[in-house]
Design a protein around this nucleic acid. Structure first.
Lengths: 341, 341
DNA sequence: CCACGCAGATATAGCGCTAAACCGACTCTG
DNA sequence: CAGAGTCGGTTTAGCGCTATATCTGCGTGG
């Protein structure tokens, strides 16, 4: 029924190992004629190697796990930014001959389980909280190469790749300040004293410091990063921060919801309120007004993540400092000077 | 180093099979005390089953392949609609204890290879061309349950799930006709005499027939379904179809590009040209004007696909007619009567 | 009191593949 | 011309797990 090495071996009149060697390109110890013959029979019989068997014997599966945080609820499980990363990562891995096991992770414990069960050759952790990454010690990870993307964890086992969030936020805030805004709201998810959001907050503050505006009040709005949360924020913004003339958000999708919510409430963007996003997802260029945002190099981040992980997988020592990708301000139409119509 | 069944067995003073039975919940032949003891030791030693070994021995991997068409070029490999499906499918599979192997497929032959190599328990084919699905005979598929999503192929091996494309297009065209449009362009990718796009074309024409407008000219614009293609279409629309007052597109992302292109060229949407999309991806509600489109029940489609596939996987006979999900017109702001300002 | 069934296990035999050791026949080479 | 390679393989020994017998007491009914 299923064609195995044995079948090929019998048909070709050689041993099973010879066939294996041919298939794996270890032609060193096989004559050219034998290679040809085996190749022909493989094609004839439509042989396809059995991956589990290969994994079991070789202790390598050519499979890379991609773990992404997933909500247990019914909301969109994968963020737009992670979705964009996903496509690039899949392509990158495929080009290198690896396969991708996609796994949404709802609870912390699942990370460990996912890592160890599938004898994965390696795993990429996309956008987890730093404390989750911190918790991954040798006992949990075992010997699986793991790399965290977008993490500020100092866990040496997961040293990975991220964007320059600090500079991004600083650029965004500088842009708003230079336009003349002074009452700027920082909108993003709850953060502790470390992590992506915290870093963006620091960058945001730094722009004020740069201009000697350290004493200035910077209202913070804690809000999740979905479209609906943006709409919700818009609803309460006028009452909670009546004087605000600009909002810096930590995610484009949040900014987009915010803009739509503001427009629905009759607040003009950018005339009444300027909005800056972060990520530069595709959609940001499609909306009206086109979103001013901080562009992350998504393709670059994915490529570095894949390269670094595969290097680790093939046993090369990996650097112990994260690769930080530059970001840049993409000035579009959602920002202008205050009362500047 | 790695904890195996053998280690547990030794520690518990039982045979390896007893441990295996406990782990797989076949407690029928194991006493309650033994179950407890083994359970405790499993937890203590942090045992996690080795999936490849299990797959090899049990000829079942708990892995479902998700194959999506992928461009070889650098463009976004996964369409927005498939991306949306992806999230729902992953969640559905995870809830049932299955894992997801995501695989972009650039060439036809890869489908066969992907299907057979990973002793997948089943596979979902997302949005492939009908002729590609047709080519999947017993010899290619083997015994792997396979289900095609969004296909009109009559291949009984892949009978799956799709939306009611015909009705969707008919609704869209009817909507435009009812608004008074007569010169409507059909914009979508090249199609043959079968398949999603063809079906939408038939539905589009049917709306004309319904109104006794069979003789009416329906210009067709062959265009791929990306944002950029939409922009490109906008550029040539005025010259190629100067009289057109409305465009029906086969994908939202194409419609969005078209709208942006038209706006850039100074053509007002919907005042000068009405645009209807298809899919109702999230973005369609974010743009300005909000896109009138045909909503597919993405969550429903994903759920049915998962349910049907898993039924097949567990050996239940599967229906030989595709599950067709209803669609509905979502009337938003990108359509209005011609010259109706 | 003896086959007989049955709970509670265990022993055996692979699944399909690979790593590593081994082997015979040649070819060098000093 | 003996010892040391090389070539072109083959054999052996699993990887960690599961399916399928098989075994061992022990209570039972006839």
């Amino acid at each position: 029924m299923r064609v195995t090495l044995k079948d090929i071996a019998e048909a070709a009149g050689v041993s099973i190992m010879t066939v294996s060697n041919v298939i794996n390109g270890k032609r060193a110890r096989v004559s050219a004629e034998t290679v040809d013959r085996v190749r022909r029979i493989v094609a004839e019989l439509g042989y396809v190697p059995n991956a589990p068997a290969r994994s079991l014997a070789a202790r390598s599966s050519l499979m890379i796990g991609l773990l992404v945080p997933a909500a247990t609820e019914d909301s969109l499980a994968i963020s737009p930014h992670n979705t964009a990363m996903l496509g690039h990562i899949e392509r990158g891995l495929r080009r290198h001959g690896y396969h991708l096991l996609l796994r949404g992770v709802a609870e912390r414990a699942e990370i460990a389980e996912a890592l160890r069960s599938w004898s994965l050759d390696g795993a990429l952790l996309l956008g987890f909280l730093d404390e989750e990454i911190d918790g991954l010690d040798k006992a949990v990870i075992g010997t699986t190469p793991v790399l965290a993307v977008d993490s500020y964890s100092t866990n040496p086992l997961t040293t990975g790749v991220r964007s320059d969030d600090f500079t991004g936020a600083r650029l965004a805030a500088a842009h708003l300040l230079d336009l003349g805004h002074r009452d700027i709201v920082f909108a993003g998810p709850a953060f502790t004293d470390v992590g992506v959001v915290h870093e963006r907050f620091l960058g945001f503050r730094a722009a004020f410091d740069d201009r000697g505006l350290s004493e200035m009040d910077c209202p913070i709005e804690i809000v999740n990063t979905t479209y609906d949360d943006g709409v919700g924020l818009a609803r309460r913004l006028r009452s909670s921060h009546p004087g605000a003339t600009a909002v810096f958000t930590t995610a484009d999708i949040l900014a987009i919801g915010l803009i739509d919510g503001l427009k629905d409430a009759g607040t003009a963007v950018p005339e009444d309120i300027s909005v800056v996003g972060f990520d530069n997802i595709d959609v940001s260029a499609y909306i009206t007004p086109k979103l001013t945002t901080i562009a992350q190099d998504i393709g670059g981040k994915a490529a570095v993540a894949v390269d670094r992980l595969l290097a680790k997988v093939t046993g090369q020592p990996s650097p112990d400092t994260p690769h930080v990708l530059p970001v840049q301000l993409v000035e579009r139409a959602s920002t202008t000077g205050p009362r500047d119509r």
